[in-house]
Amino acid sequence: MSAIRTRDLVKEYRLGRDNVVRALAGVDLEVEAGEFVALLGKSGSGKSTLLNVVGGLDRPTAGQVAVGGTELADLSERDLAAFRARTVGFVFQSFHLQPRYPAWENVALPLVFLGVGRRERRRRAAALLDDVGLAHRIDHRPAELSGGEQQRVAFARSLVSEPRVLLADEPTGNLDSETSRQIAGLLESAHERGATLLLVTHDREMAEGSADRVIRMADGRIEGAS
């Protein structure tokens, strides 16, 4: 069974009365469970939109999208929230960490909405921060961390609810090459542990070096794969 499957996926944004932007123009995509797929393409090609729709952050205008066998169109708003909490993990280019929270609370944020108690949240967050090499930074706030460390915290957060699918949107876009390699290593490590990965990136070298398959997108469509 495919981990991710889209059929004729369309996403349009209405900008003003007569201006409709078609971000996805009929995307058919299949990602097998445990597969690491990279989406390459220029800005505006629809990569991030595809990631948001697959991750349940956005609903498609038309077409179908199923993740782990669950058809997202059938989910209520509440169930879609639960899907985001349990089934997928996001890694964003801008990290999106809460400046007031220490590292462990940022990592454990998804668990708050799953009803996990504070002590268990801290235990799980500590274990993940240890995995990404930040055990010594557990109580540090984002402002006290480097860019690479912040992205590692964000990466740990994406894994805290043990999702089957990891969605990474330009995770190295704001990082230098050395730090990017560290993040790529973390992604590969997650892949090796069985996670399905969909990575959006501009970095051809990273995509071809880490992913099982590279898909190129342009103008809201899949142009080819390698």
């Binding site: 509440r78 985001r84 349990r86 909405f113 799953l114």
Partner: peptide, 12 residues
């Protein structure tokens, strides 16, 4: 937005 991205429902 982040809360909702990581799984918060509108009710929460």
């Amino acid at each position: 937005g982040l809360w909702k991205a990581v799984g918060a429902t509108s009710g929460q």
